[in-house]
Design a protein around this nucleic acid. Structure first.
Lengths: 256, 256
DNA sequence: AGCTGTGAATGACTTCACAGCG
DNA sequence: CGCTGTGAAGTCATTCACAGCT
């Protein structure tokens, strides 16, 4: 999901591919790449769907937005599909990316093999801490954030258009502003903040604690039924002025 | 989402809250917490929506699933809402969590403040590398994966039900199996693999490279229209450079 | 007057089920 | 016959717009 600002109404244009489908293409691509490495020549929608963890009707529908790349009675040619999906995602190009904020997370990202193997190339690692500058991380020197604009603009061949923010929350918006000002138009944000960006700039966010909270929600439900492994209950916060009519079940712990 | 197996048809019974709403509650909670720290007593749906990066109609609809916690003509009581959302998400409890795989990413997670400040407590850090065991990360000792089952089962008061997998891809499924076998029922997976789990276990995945790929997709589109900064740009006014087929027509690579 | 809460309308996504091709 | 590709149906989510409370 994420906080992407803009995004046309949906399947607006002719070749408009639904967002939900776009979000699954990388999944298919990974499954296909694995098959390709095992020299599997073709797959059926059923097999590929299983490998990608979706159902086959969805997968076929997704592929139908790309075109008719399968063969009835047979399935899909693995290599060909890899190419088609890569192209659709824009991975037949090389995307230079900068990572700003080289803490543990930034370092993890820099070391993450999944980038290079797809179309991404780390153009620079940037950190505000002078003590970091010059250090090697993942084989690249960390550069000081004073150089940010220069790096974004001058990276060959056409500058950098994708930035990754892995800074502390407080630094995220200023860094974002500078990235955008310098020409970045897509941002992947790991800082727990809502970034505001001008029209035309895409933001996706990855929030570690949000995912855990969603899990907790479901976990709580299970516990409600099972009464199994449960956590420790704490006291709640205060309470407001007015009493609210019970709407099903309500509080319990409500200290003044 | 993830490979999460189950999840009732949806807003199944009475207190059924739509998935999409659940996914936004943490967002609201964060915005509210910030307001709370600034001692703001009340907010309107409009203000809160802006702070959380959604539109106000959506926010009001979301809150309506929780109950009627606002005051017409006034807005929402910040403290009260914080409490209600926390409770709904299960964050008034303390959830012990284990992190498996203490590389850069695992360390980043261990150091991430957002966990403790919400209801999560890191019960243990686990790694398969004997060279890691005993080392301190984020103030906690890394424990060897031989102890995994024991940790999951014996962590007071009722064992651990949430596990985070930050291992290399190859180790993820085996680790997952062991976690589940030992009693974990919710998993947050950072490894780029589709995990298969039995009914009743929830999996959410966070995939760093997938997010980038989605950005690349949109970025590519922009380039198609604007011809701005980017990777290897195609000619804006002339003929497209052949290598990457432009939108619309099918390339020439078709295997036998 | 202002702002919430919510039915009703619209839109997006998923699933069904089967026609049609290899 | 097997499997893709896709209209049609069904489900879920967002947005509209306004009644109703404070």
């Amino acid at each position: 999901m994420a906080t992407g600002r803009n995004h046309r109404p949906a399947a607006s244009r002719g070749r408009g591919i639904p967002e939900a489908t776009v979000a699954r293409l990388p999944l298919y691509l990974r499954a296909l790449t694995a098959l390709s490495e095992r020299s599997v020549p073709t797959v059926s929608s059923e097999e590929l769907a299983a490998a990608a963890g979706v159902n086959s009707a969805k997968l076929r529908k997704d592929f139908s937005y790309l075109g008719s790349y399968g063969t009835r009675g047979v399935g899909y040619d693995v290599e060909y599909l890899v190419y088609q999906i890569s192209r659709e995602l824009g991975l037949t190009q090389d995307w230079p990316v900068v990572i700003v904020g080289i803490g543990n997370l930034g370092a993890a990202l820099a070391n993450y093999g999944g980038f290079a193997s797809r179309g991404f190339r780390i153009a620079a690692l940037i950190d505000a801490d002078p003590a970091m500058t010059g250090k090697q991380v993942a084989g690249l020197p960390v550069r000081h954030s004073d150089e940010l604009e220069e790096i974004i603009r001058d990276t060959p061949p056409n500058g950098v258009s994708i930035g990754v923010i892995a800074t502390p929350a407080g630094a995220a918006q200023p860094v974002c502003d500078r990235l955008v000002e310098a020409g970045v138009t897509s941002i992947l944000n790991f800082a727990p903040t809502v970034l505001s960006v001008p029209e035309g700039v895409d933001v996706r966010k990855v929030d570690l604690s949000i995912e855990l909270q969603i899990l907790a929600f479901h976990e709580q439900r299970k516990a409600g039924e099972d009464a199994g492994a449960g956590p420790v209950t704490r006291g709640g916060s205060g309470k407001p002025t007015t009493e609210t009519g019970p709407d099903g079940d309500i509080p319990a712990v409500m200290p003044a």
